[in-house]
Design a protein around this nucleic acid. Sequence first.
DNA 1: CATGAATGAGTCTTCATTCAT
DNA 2: GATGAATGAAGACTCATTCAT
Lengths: 207, 207, 207, 207
Amino acid sequence: MEACKSSRREREKLRQRQEVLDVALRLFSEKGYHNVSMHEIAREAEFATGTLYKFFRNKEDLYKALILQLSDRFYAAITEVVAGDAPEIEKLQTYVRVKGELFRNNVAAIRLYFEETRGARFKVMAGTEREIRKRHQSVLLSLASIFECGMNRKRFRRIAAPYHLALALDSMANAFLFHWIEDPQGNPYPEDPGTILNILFKGLVGS
Amino acid sequence: MEACKSSRREREKLRQRQEVLDVALRLFSEKGYHNVSMHEIAREAEFATGTLYKFFRNKEDLYKALILQLSDRFYAAITEVVAGDAPEIEKLQTYVRVKGELFRNNVAAIRLYFEETRGARFKVMAGTEREIRKRHQSVLLSLASIFECGMNRKRFRRIAAPYHLALALDSMANAFLFHWIEDPQGNPYPEDPGTILNILFKGLVGS
Amino acid sequence: MEACKSSRREREKLRQRQEVLDVALRLFSEKGYHNVSMHEIAREAEFATGTLYKFFRNKEDLYKALILQLSDRFYAAITEVVAGDAPEIEKLQTYVRVKGELFRNNVAAIRLYFEETRGARFKVMAGTEREIRKRHQSVLLSLASIFECGMNRKRFRRIAAPYHLALALDSMANAFLFHWIEDPQGNPYPEDPGTILNILFKGLVGS
Amino acid sequence: MEACKSSRREREKLRQRQEVLDVALRLFSEKGYHNVSMHEIAREAEFATGTLYKFFRNKEDLYKALILQLSDRFYAAITEVVAGDAPEIEKLQTYVRVKGELFRNNVAAIRLYFEETRGARFKVMAGTEREIRKRHQSVLLSLASIFECGMNRKRFRRIAAPYHLALALDSMANAFLFHWIEDPQGNPYPEDPGTILNILFKGLVGS
DNA sequence: CATGAATGAGTCTTCATTCAT
DNA sequence: GATGAATGAAGACTCATTCAT
């Protein structure tokens, strides 16, 4: 009974914590970390100011938690794709497609994520940044191993080191998808970013 | 005489203004816009607080001026390369090399520049952002025209639209150079980013 | 219960707001708007600086609220007198008496009020000044109508236009009362300002 | 020669000092003491900032000098009138007329003067205020002596103490003239303030 | 002697955080 | 446990005054 009740409490608390994170994501991505006050987050999430401090030690902590959660989601989705046992070429195509869906469905999150991922604005974020970089690195290594495999099986040309190809694919995917997010209409290319990326990659490693 | 004196004053003022910008670049890139106070900039630049306001109307103005100056420098260097009349393949190689030098010699600036280039955190930056994007776009178009030329002269394979290739090259260059900046030692690839990029691009458009 | 609690809170807040206004009145009338800092008001009122901003949007707002409250008090008292249905001569006498009491009991307020009433120092005060002038005008018109009445009933000589008499009475009352405030002891006339004003006015309009 | 040169210097300096005072009068009366900077005064008067401090020890000193000069001018003009040997009734009429001219020709000065005359906003002004009050008092006493004279010669009714009549006349003159200054067009009375004051005063002391 | 660039103390205002209810 | 009023430290910016040129 006690455990059950405690667990319900626990779950309830987590649900509320998540509500705060959702509101925080919206506000931070709209206005930036320093232009959003704890008061505003509390108001929008319909909690008292003090309650926020039950969920997070301070503003910075809330922010870190948010960024890490986003990172978790993105890399979970990506990792799943990469971990399957489909043919290499198919894995890469799925990777690009899934990443595209992530971008499309989480514009605010993506924007915030990249802002914070690019630069070392916060000394504060040091720990968090390291964590995120580790995940990014792990994705890159997974991609690299896919290239490695494909090369060993003579399906890809060994044009460059697998890790370099991974980095190239990842950066081009980000660039095309970002370009598309920023200005979906006004792009000089009407095709889907995924299609273009496929063409580019077939040109690069295809036989 | 008068003109000379006035000119010397003017030059002196510009020199001091530049000192402030240099200090600001260092501090902003270390700590981020909101974690640097005007007082701190003044102290580090060895001016009085009020003096900063002779050079810049306010903190935001100082920041914009800094970002625009960086943008100017980068795009001046890049544009020069692109505008020459060397063979296409050589132009692209020089583009990558010059960009690499820029990254190597302006680590702090690059870091700050990319931070601010990525996200629309500041409503404030609206005007500035537009300006920067315009320059970026103009570089992309220049690169695209190089690809176009090379294709017309049958030196490049017409694997994708020139603009897409431009975007691909630019993003890969950024990614490799950034990776190298973040952790010059610990990278899993020992080669120079420029070399890798060359290989990748030859694979992509080379015959 | 809820309503009661909320109402108590509300009342408590108003009480505190009034404490701030009281302190502000004292300080502003002693030193003038620009020589009193929010910090000082907060300290004297025994609040934290930030708390002041729960009551007033900014310093200017606090000041306007203060001036308007004074104006309200004064003109409420005056208007009440003027609105009664006593004989005209008696109304005027009461007007002078009540005004005298106001001056005696609110020296600081009166001083501040007249300072700000006289000159258009603040662009800021534009809206407030208009409001105050409207009230003053309404008092003058009430006084004028009293004169008008008295003239129609042949109780007053029609020596000048009613409005002019109103202005004359008002200005003389202010002058005598101010003189008395500034230096209650050292005046060359020992009589009560009210008495003198009565004599003067009887001389002016009395038959 | 030396003396002459020194005297020319002296005169030149006084002329420049006066230019500063003229500019200061305009600016202070437009914006108020605290909303005008020494820099602004210097710029408008076409002097260097530092030069102002050759003429006045500090901003407050400049302000005091300005107010005292205005006071001098006003009371010189007024005193002259009062000192003549015209018949009493005529003196009073001239007093009102001259005062009216002063108001009409020095609107900015009058506005500033009354603002600063009314209240003890500045501890600073303490000394100056005393000085001004002394002059005002002397004018009132002169007026009082005119009434005294007129009464002794049976030309005025002894309706009240001469000093009280002086205060009454002065305050009414200020009120009417001020009213006229504030809104020359929109007044409910079209007559000249002087005319009205004459009527009122004849009613008051005339036989 | 005039200049005006430089100074830095002082002001208003915001907001993360706490704690009495 | 939740609340939100109160706190006060910190930051952007101004401006009277000085002093090297």
